[in-house]
Design a protein around this nucleic acid. Structure first.
Lengths: 275, 275
DNA sequence: CTAATAGTGTCTATTAGACAGTATGTT
DNA sequence: AACATACTGTCTAATAGACACTATTAG
C-alpha cells in the first residue's frame, strides 16, 4: 500500500475516496412525552394526570405489528437533530418544540436488517397544542414505572392495549457511577426501544429538579396544583405543598385569573416566568 | 415503485437491500482527562495540580498539523463505545477505564472529506498508571477555562505550545434550558473539537458534584488536600476546608499511612470507599 | 353542611458558609 | 523559629421536611 503525498488540504480532498471507510446508516428516534388528563372520578375530584409517551404501530417489517418510537433515517443533508425535528413534525404537526439529544445506541445487532446506529432524542410537548393531528398509527400510552432493586418495571397503557417490559440497571465494575442497561422482558416493543424509554425517563426525572423544562409540557395558564401533579407523576412520589410552592416560587408568575367550577375553592392561575 | 408483500420477518430480511438508505461513516472521539502535577515552587509548597486533556497532532490530511482528540472510525463489528475503548487503549495502553458517552455531533460539514458523524466519549484516568506508554504524537495539555457571560475562553498549554479558542453558549429561544454552542475563535484545533472539549468539561464539572467519578483520576492513596485540589482545579474555584471535608467524608476511608517530608505537617492518606 | 382542594404559618432538623483556631512536620 | 499545610470546633445563615391550620367553592 503506497501512499500518495499531498501538499495541501485542497489537493487531498480532491482525491479523497469516500469509500475508504465502511459506512452505515443512522436513524433518529424520538421520545415524545406529554401529560394526559385521566377521568374525573367525581364532580369534586381533580382529574388525575398521567405521564405519557407517543408510540407508533409498525405496519412493515422488521418488527411488523410491534410498537416503536417515532423515528426514521437521517438524510445526507440534515443533522440528526434536524431529522428528529422533521419526524416530530410529521407525527404531531408541531414545530418549535423542546428537544434534546439523549444517547446514541450502536449495538451491532440492534437492527436485524443491517448495521444501523440510532441517536435518540427526547421532546416535551403540551398536548393542548395538538388539535387531533396525530398520524394514523400513533397512540399515547400512559406510563407507570416501578424501580426496585435496579429493575425498572414499566407498564404502558393506551386504554386498548397494555405493554409491559423490564429493564435492568447494572453497575459496571471498577468504574464508579456507570451503569449498563439490559432488556429483561419485552414482547411488544421493537428494537432496543425499552432502553430508550427508560433512559429518557431517567433523564427527565433528573432534569426536572434542576431546570425549568417541565413548562414545555404545561399550557400557558395553569394552577400550582396542576403543576405539582405533573411533578408528582413524573417523579413518582407525593410532594409536600409548602415545600413545592417554595421551590417553584420564582419560576412562576401569578395572574389575576382564577380557575373556577371545580367543586371546591377556586385556584389562582399562574404563568411561567423565565429568568 | 411497487412494493413486494412479505409474510414473515425472515422472508423480508432475506430480500433486504442494505443500500435502500444512504450511508455514512461514524467516528468515535475521546476526551481523555487527567490530573497533572505542576512544579514545586519551593520546598514547602505543594506542587500545583492541573486539569489536563490529551491531544494528538495530526500528521495527515485533513487538518494536517492541527491538534485533535484521539479518535477513529467505528468498525462494522463493534459498538461506538468499543471503538472508543480501542482508541483509548491504542493511545494510552490502558484498559478498564471509566468512559462515558457525551454527545453525537452531526453537522453536515463537520468533516471536509464527506459526511461523518462523530460520537464523543469522556474518560478519566489516573496518570500514574501510564508508564510512559503514550503514542508518539500525543501530548498532555493543561486546561484553563474562563466562562464569562456565556463565552467560554479556553487555553490549553503543553509547555511548548499554547492553544486558545472560544466557544459561545447561546440560549435557544422558546425552549427553556437548552443551549447551542458555537465556535467563535479557533485556529489550532481540528474539526469541531472545541465544542467537544467544552461540552466534556461542562459535563465533568456537573457530575463531579453528584457522583464519585473523581476517584477515577486519583491514585489509590491520596491526601484530602490533594483531593480538594483536584475538585478545585476542575470546578475552577476555591473550596472551604471544613465544607469540603464534610462533603467528602463518607466517600473516603482513612488509612494509617501518612504522607511525610513535605516541609509541613504530614497528611493522612485516604482511600476511596465505595458504597 | 360537606367534601375536596387552595393556600399559609411556623416549628424543627439538616445542611452550607464562614471564620478562627490548634497541630505538626521540614528546613 | 518560621512557614506552610493539616485538621477541627463552632457560630450563623439558609434550606428542607413536616404538620397543622385557615380559606373557599359547588353541590
Amino acid at each position: 500500500m503506497n501512499k500518495k503525498v499531498y501538499n495541501s488540504e485542497e489537493e487531498f480532498l480532491k482525491d479523497y475516496d469516500p469509500n475508504e471507510f465502511e459506512r452505515l446508516s443512522i436513524t433518529a428516534d424520538i421520545l415524545i412525552f406529554s401529560i394526559s388528563d385521566g377521568l374525573k372520578e367525581n364532580y369534586r375530584r381533580l382529574n388525575k394526570k398521567h405521564f405519557s409517551v407517543l408510540l407508533v404501530k409498525r405496519d412493515e417489517y422488521p418488527f411488523k405489528d410491534k410498537w416503536c418510537l417515532p423515528g426514521g433515517f437521517v438524510h445526507m443533508d440534515e443533522t440528526i437533530e434536524e431529522a428528529a425535528v422533521r419526524i416530530l413534525k410529521n407525527e404531531t404537526n408541531l414545530s418549535d418544540i423542546y428537544i434534546e439529544q439523549l444517547y446514541t445506541f450502536s449495538d451491532v445487532k440492534r437492527d436485524p436488517r443491517m448495521r444501523i446506529v440510532s441517536t435518540s432524542y427526547m421532546s416535551l410537548i403540551d398536548k393542548n397544542l395538538l388539535n387531533d393531528k396525530l398520524s394514523d398509527n400513533a397512540r399515547w400510552f400512559n406510563i407507570s414505572i416501578n424501580e426496585d432493586d435496579n429493575l425498572f418495571k414499566v407498564e404502558l397503557d393506551n386504554q386498548e392495549e397494555k405493554i409491559y417490559f423490564e429493564v435492568e440497571k447494572v453497575l459496571r465494575e471498577k468504574t464508579t457511577d456507570r451503569y449498563s442497561y439490559y432488556i429483561r422482558k419485552n414482547d411488544k416493543l421493537a428494537f432496543d426501544h425499552p432502553l430508550v424509554i427508560v433512559s429518557g425517563i431517567s433523564r427527565l426525572k433528573n432534569k426536572i429538579t434542576y431546570t425549568d423544562i417541565v413548562f414545555n409540557m404545561m399550557p400557558e395558564y395553569f394552577t400550582l396544583g396542576e403543576l405539582q401533579q405533573v411533578y408528582e407523576v413524573i417523579l413518582g412520589k407525593k410532594l409536600l405543598d409548602p415545600a413545592f410552592r417554595r421551590m417553584i416560587a420564582n419560576k412562576v408568575e401569578r395572574t389575576d385569573k382564577l380557575k373556577k367550577g371545580e367543586g371546591h375553592r377556586p385556584s389562582v392561575l399562574y404563568k411561567y416566568k423565565s429568568k
